[in-house]
Write a protein that binds this DNA or RNA. Structure first.
Length: 590
RNA sequence: UGCCCCGUGGUGUAACGGUAGCACGACUGACUCUGGAUCAGUUAGUCUAGGUUCAAAUCCUGGCGGGGCAACCA
């Protein structure tokens, strides 16, 4: 479509916009919209405006503005910054005339070319004056009128979808009277809800949005950007297309539910005889993901009711949550690219998102050894005080990432999961009499199991090593079935590790059965906190946000909120694919 | 109920009216000092009934199914 518009000469450049309302945090659904809008701008060498659609002071807050700016920057950094347009802080649209026709226009500044000027997002609230002027013009043209009906009356008179509405008795009052009343609405002469400005369209239209929709309402409320300057605020349907127009937007992409609003979007634009090309609205289906919810209302409830700790809780599908969880922005973008844009309702599998996260992390994150649930392994025939260092590869996918040295000694920790006194079928790891490889170190054979005399719990495993297998290869060419990771007890770094699982235990928490709430299907095991985890010493100075692969376990990142030097906290971003887990699952089913 | 939109493998998404393709998942196998990665392969799809056409996922009509819309929210 964009290509067609360019080819036909309808527009000579592409301008899109991402227009969130600052009443919540951005989530993966917004990420899709961001990728669409910035992606189109990028593809056609255009630009994309970040705009706060702040026309309802009751629900909005600057806290959200700040988070939105941060999230957008994070998501597009290194990808679309060159088409990211903002405006100088405090700039307002310029009032001008083109061919004798009234026009408002606001000039963008590319984020990469600020030239020292302070920049900020566009704000719908910056256009309140322009919007007001346009409203006056609408009244003069007989296309809008002030209506004195109460909200209840208006609601009733709208009729039903299959029944025409009733015309307001104020519909035909004179232009002069409407003008006067509207000016007095602005002046604050009337209390909330007493009057509205309405478009004069068609009360019998089969499209309910064309039945003289409300354009302005009276709200004596303080706005987070304009303070108390206004007591009338424009409705979304009135404001949005003019916001697009003022910014010179060519393509206005929004979600499906606005499809029925499109005739209104176009009607308002055409009602005014505007001198520049008009923006065009097109719709696409919003994103749904399995095992999560996406509506701002539900996300807000999760936060407010304490089901998660915050908007950036790593279990949240918010952009900030994903960032804290360790998802790379590249992975989120690759995901958005793959899911495509269409008008069909969809529920994308979480596994697709995780695929891109693993794909990105696999190529770029350094490998490291960490033991989450430690089990002592004593190498009986290894000298008591000896310490050796082995070279470990940082990333087999990228030789340029080099190697590091890992200390080895007589007492090690291995993963509890990597030892079974009685191995189940197909279990290749350590068990009595079995030889395995300690990664990068030696081949060891399990000789003994030490149990707590009281509880019978395995507290220690003994083994012998073969000195000839130094580095991990046997000179006689014998093979072992398994390689396990380990950490030298004396050198280990102690850490807390948080394991995350899906927030919900059902694929689609949105369709809770009647009488049930989506919170009923919350997964009680979505967070498991492990303390006393043992990490290899190279992790002692890991910086917040740093991402690693813990070999054989998954990808982990240093938590940006709770990690402290000397007391590191790691979040599991996503586990490695685990065929052993699959085998186990299958065995359990039998 | 009125209007609008949408129906392609389990999931998501492609295909000027001309061989239904790609990705994820699942399943086999190969390889492996990560039961990771990689590689090879298998599985499985045009909602339905008519019509137009040499030819229909694509165009037309009906049916069926799903979704949206009746805030002074966005």
């Amino acid at each position: 479509m964009v290509r067609q518009d360019l080819a036909s000469g309808r527009v000579d450049g592409v301008v899109t916009r991402f227009p969130p309302e600052p009443n919540g945090y951005l989530h993966i659904g917004h990420a899709k919209s961001i990728c669409l809008n910035f992606g189109v701008a990028r593809e056609f060498d255009g630009r994309c405006n970040l705009r706060m659609d702040d026309t309802n002071p009751a629900t909005e807050d600057v806290e959200y503005v700040d988070s939105i700016v941060e999230d957008v920057n994070w998501l597009i950094a290194g990808w679309a910054d060159h088409c990211f347009s903002l405006k100088p802080t405090g700039a307002l649209p310029e009032r001008r005339e083109i061919d004798g026709r009234l026009d408002y226009f606001i000039a963008p500044v590319m984020a990469t070319q600020s030239l020292g000027r302070k920049l900020e997002p566009f704000y719908a609230s910056d256009y309140f004056e322009a919007l007001y002027e346009y409203a006056l013009e609408l009244i003069r043209r007989g296309k809008a009128y002030v209506c004195d009906h109460t909200p209840e009356e208006v609601d009733f008179m709208r009729g039903a979808p299959d029944q025409p509405g009733l015309e307001s008795k104020y519909r035909n009052r004179s232009v002069a009277e409407s003008l006067d009343l509207f000016q007095r609405m602005r002046a604050g002469e009337f209390p909330d809800g007493t009057r509205t400005l309405r478009a004069k369209i068609d009360m019998a239209s089969p499209n309910v949005w064309l039945r003289d929709p409300v354009l302005y309402r009276i709200r004596h409320a303080s706005h987070h950007q304009t303070g108390d300057a206004w007591c009338i605020y424009p409705m979304y349907d009135y404001a949005h297309e003019f916001e697009d127009y003022i910014e010179g937007v060519t393509h206005s992409f929004c979600t499906l539910e606005f499809e029925v609003h499109r005739p209104l979007y176009e009607w308002l634009l055409e009602a005014l005889d505007l001198p520049r090309p008009l923006p065009r609205q097109r719709e696409f289906a919003r994103l749904n993901l399995t095992y999560t919810v996406m509506s701002k209302r539900k996300l807000l409830r999760l936060v407010q009711e304490g089901h998660v700790q915050s908007w950036d809780d790593p279990r949240m599908p918010t952009v900030s949550g994903m960032r804290r969880r360790g998802y790379p922005a590249e992975a989120v973008r690759a995901f958005c690219d793959r899911i495509g844009v269409a008008k069909r309702e969809n529920i994308v599998e979480l596994s697709l998102l995780e695929h891109f996260v693993r794909d990105e992390l696999n190529r770029h994150s350094p490998r490291v050894m960490a033991v989450l649930r430690p089990l002592r392994l004593v190498i009986e025939n290894y000298p008591e005080d000896q310490v050796e260092e082995f070279a470990a590869v940082n990333n087999p996918e990228d030789a340029a990432m080099g190697t590091r040295r890992v200390p080895f000694s007589r007492v090690l920790y291995i993963e509890q999961d990597d030892f079974r006194e009685v191995p189940p079928p197909k279990y290749h790891r350590l068990s009595p009499g079995v030889e395995v490889r300690l990664r990068y170190a030696y081949l060891v054979t399990c000789t003994d199991v030490v149990k707590d005399p009281q509880t019978g719990e395995i507290i220690e495993v003994h083994a012998t090593y073969d000195p000839a297998t130094r580095g991990g290869d046997a000179p006689d060419g014998r093979k072992v079935k398994s390689t396990i990771h380990w950490v030298s007890a004396a050198h280990a770094v102690d850490a807390e590790v948080r394991l995350y699982d899906t927030l919900f235990s059902v694929e689609n928490p949105d369709d809770a059965p009647e009488g049930r709430d989506f919170t009923d299907t919350l997964n009680p095991a979505s967070l498991e906190t492990l303390r006393g985890c043992r990490l290899e010493p190279s992790l002692a100075n890991a910086v917040p946000g740093a991402r690693y692969q813990f070999e054989r376990l998954g990808y982990f990142c240093v938590d940006t909120q709770d990690s402290r030097p000397g007391a590191p906290v790691f979040n599991r971003t996503v586990g490695l694919k685990d065929t052993w887990a699959k085998i186990q699952k299958r065995q359990r089913k039998r």
